[in-house]
């Protein structure tokens, strides 16, 4: 899942650094993730995983690191399966 997140991050994140240089727990906002790019990334994730982000997970924390994105995706996938 992290690999897919990394692919989408390099496609939509418009980061000034290579995604391969970013650790799983590194702060993506400090790495240069803008609010515009975070929404583009979210749309990419929705499309790739065939999910919909519920409003309560649309906050800064959900997109704050690669690990946080994976955690958020797992919550959504669980909620949708339930």
């Amino acid at each position: 899942m992290k690999e897919q997140i990394r692919d989408l991050l390099s496609k939509h994140g418009t980061l000034p650094v290579a995604v391969s240089d970013i650790a799983d727990d590194a702060d993506l906002y400090a790495a240069g993730l803008s609010s515009f790019a975070s929404v583009q990334l979210m749309l990419g994730l929705e499309e790739a995983f065939d999910i919909e982000f519920p409003d309560h997970l649309l906050n800064r924390k959900s997109f704050s690191s690669i690990q946080a994105i994976e955690d958020t995706l797992k919550v959504i996938l669980e909620e949708e399966a339930a």
């Binding site: 000034p16 650094v17 906002y29 400090a30 790495a31 240069g32 993730l33």
Partner: peptide
């Protein structure tokens, strides 16, 4: 945050 930080950091 320091001279080499990203513009948003």
């Amino acid at each position: 945050a320091h001279p080499d930080a990203a513009m948003t950091d």
